[in-house]
Nucleic acid binder design. Structure first.
Lengths: 127, 127, 127, 127
DNA sequence: GTGGTCTAGACCACC
DNA sequence: GTGGTCTAGACCACT
């Protein structure tokens, strides 16, 4: 379900976090779905349990999952109102990337199709 | 001209690099404009000269500036043809931001206008 | 494994970089093989850790190795697709050497056999 | 006759040296032809006279030119017997570049045509 | 213990 | 004075 690779860049906990974000955003993990336990995932990824724990903590802080002691971690109902900050950050990142691409001479169509892609993926999963 | 703050995220040399990238992309620093000397900038930012040097080296490797021993560092002629790695990195960042925004419920029109803005700014600077 | 000598020309970090490039290109260091740690190598070469680190960083930027914090540095899967800059630099070096040899009266056959050799070595390593 | 540009890489005296090597190798400057005087060239390149002087010194040491006090600098008869060392160095550089290109996946034909080019240029100038 | 960042201070090459 | 390299030594993040 999750792939870790040095080529993806970033530390292990960042990659785990990004992978779950992706799975949730793409609708593969639905609302209230249970995530693998820390111990289980750490074994299957051959990674230190602390590393998984840290990723789960960050996902919880960002509102993507919630944890119940003794039961496990689950996908939150999303998008939640708490994500305005995240939206602004993401839009700012998008603007910076767009300006850089414009500067480097990339074709505008490439950016537009990237955005179309992001939104059509979403549509598809919503149905 | 340049502001460093832990809030911006990233290490010092990354922040310096990002700031100059921005100044060059936005056309504030024009072709062949001279950058502050390593020592000068390190003093004004109260940062070690090596930290500034490292940022300049990266900018040079990425084709944004060129350095001449004994003379100084200057803005390159741009766009630096065929910097495929940089373009791919930027496009990948844009895709990630777009998917996140789509998930968080942002309106597609907002993203499209951000891109229009980036490209119309570019036109403006070209004139 | 690695020899530094002022006779080789270039700065220390360039020599370290060139030596590892050679070891990787010649297939002596295979994919995912672990390089000596920064500290270890710096001790055995009686060189500052920063100097080794710089060489490793450049090798990573050029796609020859990848580094994982807390684990070590390893040989990348190769050839690193589409490193156009490196290829152009190498081709330009080859052209310069060929022109100089032509001028100095070297026999063309000698150059051709050098190239045959380079490509037959490659076949050998692929098997 | 000579172009200096930061894009060529290397320090100024190295560029001047490389340019004259090229002019001599390509037969544009023939045997015993007189080079511009140090002062004259330093003015036309808007470069410090010491920089030109240094390039001429290196060219003389490598056997490409000879200087007569009070008269000027002139192209040597070439290739001279003293250039065996240079040939070996050049062949070694060519081998290294070829192996790197083979490793990076460049097509062998590209290298062969680069060599053909170097030798056909020479033929042409000899006629 | 590993890689990554930063400071402090020195020396060199170049102009 | 400018960029480039190197040493020495410290601290942090990650595993």
């Amino acid at each position: 379900m999750i792939n870790l690779s040095p080529a993806n860049g970033g530390s292990l906990h960042e990659q785990i976090e990004a992978e779950f974000k992706r799975l949730i955003i793409d609708g593969i993990l639905e609302e209230n779905a249970q995530l693998p336990s820390v111990r289980e995932l750490s074994l299957s990824l051959t990674v230190n349990p602390n590393t998984v724990q840290r990723a789960y903590k960050t996902l919880e802080a960002d509102g993507f999952i919630y944890s119940i002691k003794g039961k496990g971690s689950f996908v939150s109902r999303l998008p939640s109102a708490a994500n305005i900050r995240l939206s602004e950050e993401a839009l700012s990142r998008l603007r910076a990337a767009a300006r850089e691409l414009a500067f480097l001479g990339a074709e505008k169509a490439a950016l537009l199709s990237a955005i179309d892609e992001a939104y059509s993926d979403k549509e598809g999963n919503d149905i």
